[in-house]
Amino acid sequence: MFTGIVTDVGDIERVTPTAQGQLHRLRILCSYDQATIADGASIACNGICLTVVASGVAGGRTWFEVDAAAETLGVTTAGDWAAGSRLNLERALKIGDELGGHVVTGHVDGIATVLTREDLPDMARFVLRVPRELARFIAAKGSVTLDGASLTVNTVEDDRFSVLIIPHTLSVTTIGAWRGGQAVNIEVDLMARYAARLTETSR
């Protein structure tokens, strides 16, 4: 489990696909202490919960490797990642940690598209389009996870919604580089999903 509070921005050093292209081995550079990264640990990479298979230190910087399987490559933005791509990172939640965002599973539901970016005096406003089957889980003032960052929904209209991003978040995540047309991973709020399911079963 995660909180959607990004703790580092990593850089993909290399992507190694299998011969069949069904699995990508990713090496990601980060600022985490390598001694704290155990094989089998979970790290959210742009909101995708991935399992560490190896780690080390090279050139004074920590690296870790994860595998992205065919399902992940097909339903998230991971299939487009390449050397040089920057990723929002978050370590798995530990008992006693502060829950600063909301409960995030790291199981991405799909891909949303940034339609517009408006830079305001004290923040940036993004309008995104979500896959229609996920639109019912998006509510004004509710939570949504975009590329691993816990955000509050500002407005909703059909399959479009907006978020307002403060300068701190723009500076410590990859959101500062978002532009129109960009694809981002989306995970809907877990409580919204359960509420929708309860409504369906009660009919």
Results as ranks from 00 to 15, higher is better:
A78G: 12
D97P: 04
L50V: 09
T36H: 11
L115C: 07
I95V: 09
V52S: 03
D67M: 03
H24P: 08
S143E: 07
R129C: 10
G100S: 07
Q34F: 15
I48R: 05
R197H: 08
D109Q: 00
T116M: 00
A177G: 05
G59K: 03
T76D: 06
V53T: 13
F161V: 00
V57G: 07
A68M: 06
V6A: 02
K94R: 15
D189C: 00
A177P: 00
T152M: 00
V156H: 00
L73G: 06
W178C: 10
R91M: 07
V75A: 08
L50Y: 11
A58V: 13
S171W: 07
M1V: 15
N88S: 06
D33T: 11
S31G: 12
D159I: 03
G79S: 04
A135K: 00
G79H: 11
L26D: 11
A135C: 07
T199G: 13
L190C: 03
A78N: 14
E98F: 10
A19W: 06
A19Q: 11
L89Q: 09
D39S: 15
H24D: 15
D159H: 14
Y194F: 13
T77N: 13
V153S: 02
L198W: 01
T155G: 08
A192D: 08
A19Y: 09
E200R: 12
L128G: 06
D8P: 01
I165E: 05
S85G: 03
F64P: 14
K94Q: 15
L89W: 04
A135R: 02
M191D: 14
V114T: 14
Q20C: 08
T116L: 01
E118P: 04
V57D: 10
A192T: 11
D97E: 01
D147T: 08
A92T: 07
T169M: 02
R91H: 14
T199P: 07
N46H: 12
D147L: 00
E13W: 14
D8V: 02
R27H: 14
P131E: 00
G181A: 03
V104P: 09
V130D: 00
Q22V: 13
L29V: 12
T155L: 13
S150W: 09
R197C: 05
E118C: 08
T18F: 09
D122H: 15
E187L: 00
V188Q: 05
T16F: 00
G84P: 10
T51K: 03
A149K: 12
T76C: 02
D122A: 15
N154P: 08
I166S: 03
S202M: 15
S150P: 02
L128M: 12
I28D: 12
A149E: 11
G59T: 02
